[in-house]
């Protein structure tokens, strides 16, 4: 007679073990170490006497400059997400509903093609377009429309243009899958009942695609606030974001503790925004499970 009290291990659960270990090793451990470093006076591995301190967090809270940097980072992330959504949604809708297989393939290629080039290369391409001696300013000057170059980069707008170009494919690909799974008969039923195409979109398609909007927006927002290359090149080092400040603290100030504290603040704010975003979208769509 088998022992009934002994716990039985599901063999399928063992398959999850490697990925769970990998996740713990490369996700939780680094974040845990960063959290610990942010409250220590030094690196315990190489320094003999290390204690706990809140000075790194106090420095962030006491100096308005760091709060401004945090707000700049979030502002760039939010604008990038909004613009990527506005550009990406119609494209994703078109891709999801196009009847022609070759048309769908062409659109998919058009969305994926930029991703085959590295971020640095794409950012440099934008610099050749937007700089003072860039294509746009040269053309406008040649046409006699401007006498001094337009300030198209070295500002937040330049950064947002570059980030949107890089992250729109993430938004489109996320949305296409969700919109493609919406039952078209629901839209047809709405139109049969007298709704205009616009009202059908607003009251049927848009609410049903909210999970895709949520997922795509979170993906783009997370990528945008952690971007380093594009903000540093298109911002001309004059727009300070948290990733740039964190790198500066490690590479030039050698202050790992303060860099870790900045990283934890970025993580905490991002988590709060994600929770709030979920909550708001859940209320708007009526999909309580989103909360």
């Amino acid at each position: 007679m088998p022992a009934t009290g002994a716990p039985r291990v599901n063999s399928l659960a063992l398959l999850i073990l490697p990925s769970a270990l990998l996740f713990a090793l490369f996700f939780f451990l680094p974040i845990g170490l960063m959290a610990v470093m942010s409250v220590l006076t030094g690196n315990p591995v190489v320094m003999p006497h290390v204690g706990f301190t809140a000075k790194h967090y106090a420095r962030i809270g006491n100096d308005s400059y760091y709060l401004e940097v945090i707000w700049t980072t979030l502002r760039i992330g939010l604008w990038t997400t909004i613009v990527a959504l506005v550009i990406g949604y119609p494209l994703a809708h078109w891709m999801a509903r196009i009847r022609s297989r070759s048309g769908h393939a062409l659109l998919l290629m058009a969305v994926l093609a930029p991703m085959l080039t590295g971020i640095v290369v794409r950012t440099f391409a934008w610099m050749t377009l937007l700089s003072d001696k860039g294509v746009i300013n040269q053309v406008l000057a040649a046409l006699g429309l401007i006498s001094t170059p337009l300030q198209l980069m070295y500002n937040e707008s330049g950064i947002i243009i570059g980030l949107v170009h890089i992250y729109v494919p993430f938004m489109v690909l996320t949305l296409t899958g969700v919109i493609g799974r919406i039952d078209e008969r629901l839209e047809q039923a709405a139109e049969n009942l007298g709704a205009s195409p616009w009202r059908t979109f607003l009251e049927v398609t848009l609410p049903l695609s909210l999970p895709g909007i949520l997922a795509g927006s979170l993906l783009v927002f997370a990528l945008a606030i952690s971007a380093y290359v594009t903000p540093i090149l298109l911002g001309g080092f004059q727009i300070m974001t948290l990733p740039i400040l964190i790198y500066q603290q490690i590479s030039a100030n050698f202050n790992v503790g303060f860099a870790a504290a900045l990283g934890m603040v970025l993580l905490a704010i991002s988590l709060m925004l994600v929770i709030a975003y979920n909550h708001v979208l859940g209320l708007v769509s009526g999909q309580r499970e989103l909360q």
Binding site: N43, V45, V46, S251, F254, V256
Partner: peptide, 13 residues
Amino acid sequence: ALPFLPKLQASSR
């Protein structure tokens, strides 16, 4: 591969 000092800082004395 820059930066050098953080790497030296992180290595054992």
